[in-house]
């Protein structure tokens, strides 16, 4: 059932609506658990679109196996998504810095407050992100150290190779992740893929994890996969960040999500006017490239790759 979570009138002949799809068992009881999947806080992150579509399709295909309520919020920043804008247009604010919002606040804060109100009381929430246009990420769960004890067993179900227990912009104060966990809704943030694109392979991988999580929560009675056993990084020093020292055009030499040996070439920054190499970037240690630069134009300081230390 499609429901409108919040509507805000725009200046000229348009109202912005944020909608959700509520999926319920064929014979609902009052005591079912509720699971929420939300995505699209950043208008340029589209990976969650496929997951929402596929999740709804597969649940409806076998609705008799659903034993709880699933609320799917596929696009909470519709103006951003349809104007290829990461932030909330006109206000130019990062919606993931607006939570828990303010019912009396402006459009972004008001919408944030209505979303939090709508999710409040749920038994679990999953906040799906898709990096940005600059970096490609492997599917990974991110959580704060303070939530590790409570949330790790659920994070492991999501069928990712990597769980990063580390503060990041995705989970800072004023984020949805932080606000929901603060009001007692266990919430995990998932990062995957790259902005403005859909990576079906990643989506399929996370979908299997979502069903495994729903099974654990008592919301899904169908067969689920045995999730991958993720590498868990709890220490910042296990993750090496490689930044550009030169400006130019980045040409990767490695594949994303592959092992790399110390000294292997990660990529080159080249000058396409002079035909010269400005910088050759090599791996400082063995590991796995879990973040790789996608947008080729770089300045000094641009993040090129993140390597998770370990065997290549």
């Amino acid at each position: 059932m499609i429901k409108t979570v919040v509507s805000v009138g725009l200046p000229v002949l348009e109202t912005m609506h944020i909608k959700k799809n509520r999926l319920t068992p064929k014979s609902p009881k009052a005591s079912e658990k509720r699971f929420c999947v939300i995505t699209g806080i950043h208008g340029d992150e589209l990976e969650g679109q496929y997951i929402c579509y596929e999740l709804i399709r597969r649940i409806e295909e076998k609705i008799e196996l659903l034993s709880g309520t699933v609320d799917v919020y596929p696009c909470v920043n519709p103006l951003g998504m349809e104007s290829i804008t990461r932030r909330v247009p006109t206000f130019d604010l990062d919606m993931n810095r607006s939570f828990p919002g303010d019912l009396e606040g402006d459009m972004s804060e008001h919408a944030a407050a209505k979303i939090v109100d709508d999710i409040a009381g749920a038994d679990f929430c999953l906040d799906l992100h898709a990096s940005n246009i600059f970096l490609r990420e492997i599917p990974q769960v991110r959580l704060l150290k303070e939530h590790q004890e409570k949330l790790m067993k659920y994070a492991k179900l999501l069928n990712t190779e990597f769980v990063w227990v580390h503060p990041s912009p995705t989970i800072q104060p004023a984020s949805l992740y932080h606000s929901l966990n603060s009001i007692g809704v266990p919430t995990l943030a998932v990062e995957m893929g790259v902005g403005m694109r859909i990576t079906k392979q990643f989506g399929d991988q996370i979908i299997e994890g979502i069903f495994a999580l729903m099974k654990e929560l008592g919301i899904w009675e169908g067969e689920v996969i045995q999730p991958k056993d993720p590498i868990i990084s709890t220490a910042k020093d296990r993750v090496t960040l490689l930044h550009a020292n030169a400006s130019g055009i980045f040409l990767p030499s490695v594949e994303h999500w592959k092992g790399i040996k110390k000294g292997d070439e990660v990529g080159k920054i080249v000058n396409s006017l002079t035909g010269t190499i400005e910088q050759t970037i090599t791996a400082p240690n063995d590991g796995m490239v879990f973040t790789l630069r996608e947008y080729p134009v770089v300045y000094g300081g641009s993040l090129i790759a993140r390597i998770l230390e370990g065997e290549a």
């Binding site: 805000v8 009138g9 725009l10 200046p11 000229v12 006109t90 009396e104 606040g105 402006d106 459009m107 008001h110």
Partner: peptide, 8 residues
């Protein structure tokens, strides 16, 4: 020149 409801 334009304003959105609830805006300060």
């Amino acid at each position: 020149p334009l304003v959105i409801q609830n805006c300060i």
